[in-house]
């Protein structure tokens, strides 16, 4: 039994999207909430890559932000190495925080444009007090730059002097500066070109091997996920609909939504393939369908699907949330 680094139980978050107080009182409208994450459970084992996949609005990025502490969950728990992050005191939280870091999607927005690379990578070193002296800090920065395939001289430049892929490497170096075990990667390659994406993914898997990192990988790109992850969770409207080993999910999807996703991926092996795509789009999370959120688009929906909300059931190797599986 490999120990789990992170486990998440019944994670939920509601965002208040009400109109301002005065107009709400005048129009006698109640407060409105978006239930962005509606009860998510998973755990990530040490050294593995767990991916969350789904279309926009499914809440996958929100889960990443909940785990990283950028949002406070409305309900549920996030347990990182035995510490419940939700109930932890501030000082203790800072200590635990060293253990996990985040890599962001947009390499142009994730680095402060007015800071030099040395300061960007040095920030976590300063914050966690990891270096004894200026020389030590500089040596650490150079070492980190080497680790992601950049040269030590690059520390004196500003972010705008780098290409998208190089910036993402700087972002990774910053995340690694506090020597974390767990990295939350929110669409780290979706803003990059494919040839550069390959470079970044390769660096990430090299680092995983070398440093024994655990990844939570958020992506909407199925092919990247199938290449990069060990286990996959498919999300739809704030819930996990299917969780399993990557090969199982991609080769024999069980949930109708997973099937639909797999069907829609453009394929380079079957050129000019004729398809009959599934109709419909993801409904607004403001007003999700009753019962199983997927039932209005589901080809095998029954009457029960409209009223009963399925839970994630364990089917041995994988779990599926569908009444008809």
């Amino acid at each position: 039994m490999v120990e789990s680094v992170v486990s998440v139980e019944n994670l939920q978050i509601k965002f208040d999207v009400s109109v301002p107080l005065l107009s709400r009182l005048l129009k006698r409208k109640p407060k409105t909430y978006v239930h962005a994450v509606r009860g998510v459970d998973f755990s990530i084992k040490k050294g593995e890559t767990f991916s969350l996949v789904g279309e926009s609005g499914c809440g996958k990025s929100t889960v990443a932000k909940l785990l990283s502490g950028l949002h406070k969950p409305s309900d549920g728990s996030v347990v990182f190495k035995g510490h419940d992050l939700v109930s932890l005191s501030r000082s203790k939280l800072k200590e635990v925080r060293r253990g996990f870091q985040m890599i962001f999607q947009d390499p142009y927005a994730s680095l402060n444009p007015r800071w030099k690379v040395a300061d960007i990578i040095g920030e976590p070193i300063d914050l966690f007090g990891l270096a004894d002296s200026k020389q030590h800090k500089q040596a650490m920065v150079i070492e980190l730059l080497h680790q992601v395939g950049l040269s030590g001289e690059d520390r004196l430049k500003y972010p705008h002097e780098f290409s998208g892929g190089q910036r993402q490497r700087i972002s990774i170096a910053r995340a690694l500066a506090s020597k974390p075990e767990f990295l939350i990667c929110d669409e780290p390659t979706s803003a990059l070109d494919v040839s550069v994406q390959a470079q970044v993914l390769n660096i990430m898997s090299e680092l995983q091997e070398k440093l024994g990192l655990t990844y939570l990988f958020i992506s909407h790109d199925m092919s990247v996920v199938s290449h990069f992850s060990d286990r996959v969770g498919i999300m739809y409207l704030g819930r996990l609909v299917e969780v399993g080993e990557v090969a199982d999910i991609f080769n024999s999807p069980k949930h109708p939504y997973t099937k639909m996703l797999m069907e829609a991926i453009p394929s380079m092996d079957e050129i000019n393939k004729e398809r009959t795509p599934v109709s419909g789009e993801v409904p607004s999370p403001l007003n999700p369908p009753s019962g199983c959120a997927f039932h209005p688009r589901c080809p095998n929906a029954t009457h029960a699907c409209a009223s009963e909300s399925p839970v994630l059931r364990d089917l041995g190797e994988r779990s599926v949330a569908c009444l008809n599986v």
Partner: peptide
């Protein structure tokens, strides 16, 4: 450099 579904390479 495009990852392919079902083809899991180390790199």
């Amino acid at each position: 450099s495009i990852p392919r579904i079902g083809v899991r390479k180390k790199r």
